[in-house]
Nucleic acid binder design. Structure first.
Lengths: 186, 186
DNA sequence: CAGCTAACGCAAAAGAATAGCTTTTGCCCT
DNA sequence: AGGGCAAAAGCTATTCTTTTGCGTTAGCTG
């Protein structure tokens, strides 16, 4: 955006707020650009020009919803920190609204910038957990890439491609397997 | 569908064929229901009634594209079989058209049936590879779930959420790590 | 072969998206 | 401060998509 301040900023905020309100009032399926624009006190053409289409707008909004609200909990031990974080992550992402936001974020975003942001959020939180562990002097702290591959990716894959059968125990198993590489599998 | 044979089947095939043709001719972005319907020799309302909207239709077509065309190669050894398969899988899925099909399949499919089908295709191919290995009497053959979690899921996650930086070497590493669980990580 | 009904065609109407042009409003420069 | 430039929003007409109601066709069943 060439003009971050003033009217542009107000319009962006009004439109995002309108999406939030209308999502709650009429449901995601019933959202349309004219409806959102009218609620935001803006003309539809403004929305089309700024966002291109409804999908891209919803993609933007979805990324906001997916931003973590707090720092990961600090229990004093890596395994517990990661487990708690993974359980909560899975819980949020696998819920109906979480799945809807993920899909929206992926969808209206051919370049992958919004999707990349989602991954960056997770990477950031994991980085925090791992850094704490390293600062405490814990041994065998994996790197963030490994945790993304071994914990986050399987959860996301199942959320997107294999609906059903996801629970906190699965998250715990992934974390445990990730932290104990010598464990034998059949 | 209550009437699998006759006209219904012909319409379905004509519409799918029209999508294929037009994808090649005008590009995915330019596809519209009226355009597809006219090419298929059908009225738009028929398409809307059968598929609901464009996204669901494209989701159906995408799943067809994602169906594997051949059995996995048989090299006589599990590690090589899996490596070859993963390399090819990543290559196809990470390509621009592969990514587009994945997104389409996920998108127009609130129930997740089409997405589940994609995962089932991969599981089937992996199952074939693992079964061969077991029949040969190889030791330490993982189960299909493990391969999905450790090989397929990370590739898919990166394709969807972290564009860029994907190559055959990554696929090889995932397979190797999956087959040698005692390997130490930092 | 006769009846039933799902599925399609047709056409009208509602709604959404686009494009051209005008107006407003930040922002920068003197 | 004031003036000029250009980005962004408003307005409106037009096009295209989507929905809907009703009549027709054509598989399926007895």
């Amino acid at each position: 955006m060439a003009r971050p301040g003033g009217r542009s900023a107000r319009v962006q905020q009004a439109v995002h707020a309108a999406v939030h309100e209308l999502e709650a009032e009429v449901g995601r399926e019933a959202l349309t650009v004219p409806l959102i624009a009218s609620r935001a006190g803006v003309t539809p053409s403004t929305v089309y020009r700024r966002w291109g289409d409804l999908r891209e707008l919803l993609s933007d909004v979805a990324v906001e919803h997916l931003r973590p609200e707090a720092e990961p909990e600090d229990t004093g031990e890596l395994a517990a920190d990661l487990t708690v974080w993974a359980e909560q992550f899975l819980d949020e992402m696998a819920s109906p609204s979480g799945r809807a936001y993920i899909r929206d974020a992926l969808l209206g975003d051919p370049e992958g910038a919004n999707a990349g942001q989602c991954s960056a959020y997770a990477a950031e939180q994991i980085g925090t957990v791992l850094r704490r562990a390293a600062d405490r002097g814990e041994q065998r702290v994996p790197d963030a890439e490994t945790v993304l591959d071994r914990v986050v990716a399987p959860m996301m894959y199942r959320i997107l491609f294999r609906p059903g059968g996801l629970d906190a125990d699965y998250a715990r198993r992934l974390v445990a397997d990730c932290l104990t590489p010598e464990r034998d599998r059949r």
